[in-house]
């Protein structure tokens, strides 16, 4: 892997190497785990302030005061990591006809039936990406208002608190399934984000069109 990337002119991902396919470049994996870490930190410190049921989580951050101080900085660091991820992925996240077909076959996908004509990212991943971008933007903007409440008019604060909370809940649901899918449901998926590689069988099962493209390139 490391050697392959060092070869000048060779792409950093989307190529076959032995029995494996390189799915995510090292830089993308680093960015992913960067946002993952700060998402979890922001999520836990945020959950602590979301409900008294979860206030005990402030203990992870040195108490309520420090949790409140750290929470916005976690999200700033999250955003910093999300920018390169966004730039790298945005072109591949465009909606196509085959995505509409995937959505139609969502029930089959849930039953682990293979869906034909799926590129590097399936429609579910694309929707997750765009939901994260838009939702993240709303979280960020409402979060800035909550960060510096006295700098903003009252109506904007009245709007920001519940919006921030709604987005927190939606992200909570999203992250539960994101983790479930990669860690438990889809075997062989997690390694795409750790070592960066997947097996050829995985590639042709989950993303057949992407695998064909990669194979044709050689």
């Amino acid at each position: 892997m490391a050697n392959a990337q060092a070869v000048v002119g060779k792409p950093d991902q989307d190529f076959v190497e032995g029995n494996l396919v390189v799915r995510h470049s090292l830089s993308i994996r680093v960015a992913h785990w960067w946002v993952a870490v700060f998402f979890i930190l922001a999520f836990l410190s945020g959950a602590a302030l979301y409900s008294p049921r979860f206030f005990f989580l402030t203990n992870l951050f040195g108490g309520g005061y420090t949790a409140r101080q750290l929470h916005p900085w976690f999200s700033v660091l999250f955003t910093l990591g999300f920018v390169p991820l966004f730039l790298r992925w945005v072109n591949q996240m465009a909606w196509t006809d085959s995505d509409a077909n995937w959505v139609k076959n969502f029930k089959r996908y849930m039953r682990y039936e293979e869906i034909p004509d799926v590129g590097k990212f399936n429609a579910g991943q694309k929707l997750f990406f765009w939901a994260a971008v838009l939702g993240g933007l709303v979280l960020l903007l409402s979060g800035v208002v909550i960060w510096f409440p006295t700098s903003f008019p009252l109506w904007l604060r009245y709007l920001s608190y519940p919006l921030h909370e709604i987005l927190f809940i939606l992200f909570g649901i999203a992250i539960i399934y994101h983790i479930y899918i990669t860690l438990f449901a889809l075997g062989g998926t997690l390694r795409a984000m750790t070592r960066g590689t997947v097996t050829k069988n995985w590639a042709s099962s989950h993303h057949p069109r992407w695998y064909d493209e990669v194979r044709r390139k050689g």
């Binding site: 539960i176 479930y180 449901a185 042709s204």
Partner: peptide, 30 residues
């Protein structure tokens, strides 16, 4: 929002677990 959010997040965990009980881990074709 708070009770609804707690319920939805709890249901999500239950839903994921139920899915796992029914379908288990997806295996790739050979």
């Amino acid at each position: 929002l708070k009770p609804l959010g707690n319920l939805l997040m709890l249901l999500s965990v239950v839903g994921a677990f139920a899915h796992f009980m029914r379908f288990g881990k997806r295996e790739d074709h050979e």
